[in-house]
Design a protein around this nucleic acid. Structure first.
Lengths: 205, 205
DNA sequence: AAACATTTGTGATATGATGTACAAGGGTGA
DNA sequence: TCACCCTTGTACATCATATCACAAATGTTT
């Protein structure tokens, strides 16, 4: 990484680029220009070039970008190794749905194991072992940094446990607002809030 | 609404405020100051005050905000009527999970009906009728504006159909990139991208 | 009732993101 | 090999958003 100061807005667009590039690669596209990619993902070409420039000089003038090596760079340089170990905390309805919906295997990593506080949930679910949350430290993979949180209660308490165990990134599917110290990053995915925002925007057009 | 120019960034925070205010209300809190609310949701108090000011003068100087009436304003003025009619398009694994996970009933509205192209899916699922997508126009509720998209293929094609039928807001759970004309708002919810962004941030701290 | 202690709402300012314009330099074809 | 064309990468300008600082207004206390 060139610098250590990539704008937040740019960071949010990297996944979009990566997704698009994978699709293009799959379609057999070998090289692409910022303009084309811009049309594809609905982002100004100049914004794309600037975003890329934070990583380095990835393109060739008068030629464009090589799709394969661009994907390579995004994966490697940015740290998306396909085997990022993820844990799922909360094996309820949503948790199970996410496990079944394992489209992300070999794209961002895989769910190594799950945890729950309900004894009935302990066992194996969709080939993923489910342990009791009290055994978190015992079963948490060494290099696991990211947890997917789908518990239905005591969210904050659970978060505190996770952080203490070394988790530094949490994808929060909970409806609760949770807090974390600096250094731990939380991204909330909330259908309700998303729909609300949509309604606000629609009413505001 | 005071003006018709609420910043996008503000619009994205309204759901956060609303969620927090509901929780506070539930906890019995009757009044709150921007500073407190700021601590609660991790947003600068001054940002909160300005965000609120786009709607009107909601607070009292030297006193703060009345929680109940603030919720009232958000619901009414901003158009979150609890019975916003939603449709679900795609009754696969994820779609069904979302239907079961109907926490948003009476919070933003309810899923009135679902559509799918697979004949095996037609019928009733979790008390929600599932129709064939070809009958969209027939069964689409009159005042339905928002669709939740969970199809596993032909996303763009489906989107075009929805827009033609009058849908103006789409919550996109698809992995595909979809495009829409101006006036139609799309919000993508993608677990994979969320995790990727998290990894980028964690690696970048 | 008057003085005080608070907290809002908002101009002014600083920071961050996006868009414009173009120099630099590699690819392409004669 | 050389000249031309094209696209990148970035300085500069513009726009959007967040923060600061404070006057105005209200509740509270004496």
């Amino acid at each position: 990484m060139k610098q250590n100061k990539v704008p937040k807005a740019t960071l949010q667009r990297y996944p979009i680029y990566l997704k698009a590039l994978r699709k293009l690669h799959h379609m057999g596209v070998e090289r692409i220009m910022s303009r084309e990619l811009g049309n594809f993902v609905d982002i100004e070409s100049t914004t794309i070039r600037r975003d890329f420039s934070f990583i380095g000089s990835l393109g060739k003038q008068g030629y464009g970008y090589d799709v394969a090596s661009l994907i390579e760079v995004f994966n490697g340089q940015l740290g998306v190794n396909f085997d990022e170990k993820l844990i799922l905390v909360g094996a309820g309805n949503l948790g199970r749905a996410l496990m079944n919906y394992n489209r992300w295997n070999h794209v961002v990593g895989e769910i190594v194991c799950a945890f729950d506080t309900d004894n009935d949930k302990i066992g194996t679910l969709s080939e993923v072992p489910v342990y009791h949350l009290r055994d978190l430290k015992q079963y948490l993979p060494k290099d696991c940094r990211i947890a997917i949180l789908t518990v239905s209660g005591n969210a904050q308490e659970t978060v505190d446990l996770l952080i203490e165990a070394g988790i530094v990134g949490i994808v929060n599917f909970t409806h609760e607002h949770i807090q974390a110290p600096k250094g731990v990053i939380i991204r909330t995915v909330d259908v309700v809030s998303t729909i609300q925002e949509l309604i606000f925007q629609v009413n505001n057009f």
